[in-house]
Design a protein around this nucleic acid. Structure first.
Lengths: 166, 166
DNA sequence: AGGCCCACGCAATATTGTTTCGTAAAAGCG
DNA sequence: CGCTTTTACGAAACAATATTGCGTGGGCCT
């Protein structure tokens, strides 16, 4: 079990790498105010302990030809744990499904999907999702436009909170 | 206007950097089958042309103390363009709101929110979101657990599609 | 064919990543 | 209160990578 305690420098590192994941280590070290070697050690530790799960380029879906983005609200017939797991596993195998979250309330899952065009999504919807075992209902909403898409978490909220509890 | 045409190597680069945004350029070059200098030139071009919008570390929200993730479905009173813009602008200023997408159908916007705990989210909900001008209704759903969270777009779907149209 | 234009690869240099090591400050203990 | 242990830092040395400049070969138009 790791030492699960992050000091202010660790949090700065996470905030910087969340904002720019390709920053060089020397630049990162300069920004958080320590020299390069301990900075790199901290980053490696944060990766090993799972605070950093990975690094990803943010590609422009529309420019790449994925013009359709859809949120799908899915209700299941059975909410037995094994049935929930089975549905989640199916979602992992569908490449059009980018995110799958289990929710409370009347809807069981929300899916974020990306497709090159509407007909591709429609054939996925009718051919895969609606016909999957245990699926009771699906309500889809097309994304007209994106207004905000920030990665990860708001570190400023975290810092505020920590200074209050200090 | 750029030459908007991506060859197979460009798409490979995007796929690799989406999967691992911190890959070194020599490793990337090795994987896509060209030498390092032209590979770096391609990456720079993809960045300048906007195919790559940025790089981000994927941090573990729960480990960091953001235990609550919520989807909020928001309906507005007026859907006049200026009112839509005004609401979007407000979302950009709320740090708890990580994503904001405008939808078709009965719901106008879907918001993905992250908060350290339920009470923080509740005070945002009642103090900010519900009392914001022009907001008619908000339905929130807590995320019980995440089942899939893949970044970006499925490149294998794109390649399939391109080979069919060839 | 000839010439132009890209994009490539090679080689050289600048910058960065990584390991090693000595030191100093903080935490635990007699 | 002083000692040991632990932990993290920074400087230097080394390895690897990023970046630039340049020469070359293939596609393409006239």
């Amino acid at each position: 079990m790791p030492t699960h305690r992050l000091d202010p420098i660790d949090r700065m590192i996470l905030a910087e790498l969340q904002a720019d994941g390709r920053m060089t280590n020397v630049e990162l070290a300069r920004r958080v105010g320590i020299s390069a070697p301990p900075c790199l050690r901290r980053v490696r530790t944060l990766e090993e302990q799972g605070f950093i799960k990975g690094y990803h380029a943010d590609v422009d879906a529309r420019e790449l030809g994925f013009e359709v983005q859809v949120f799908a609200m899915v209700g299941l017939v059975s909410q037995a744990e094994s049935d929930l797991r089975a549905f989640e596993e199916r979602c992992r195998e569908w490449p059009l499904v980018r995110e799958c979250h289990m929710l409370n309330g009347e809807v069981d899952f929300i899916l974020k999907c990306a497709a090159p065009d509407l007909s591709t999504f429609q054939s996925f919807l009718t051919g895969d999702l609606l016909t999957a075992p245990n699926v009771a209902s699906v309500k889809t909403s097309l994304v007209i436009r994106g207004a905000k898409d920030e990665p990860g978490v708001p570190f400023d909220v975290l810092e505020e909170r920590l200074s209050r509890n200090a």
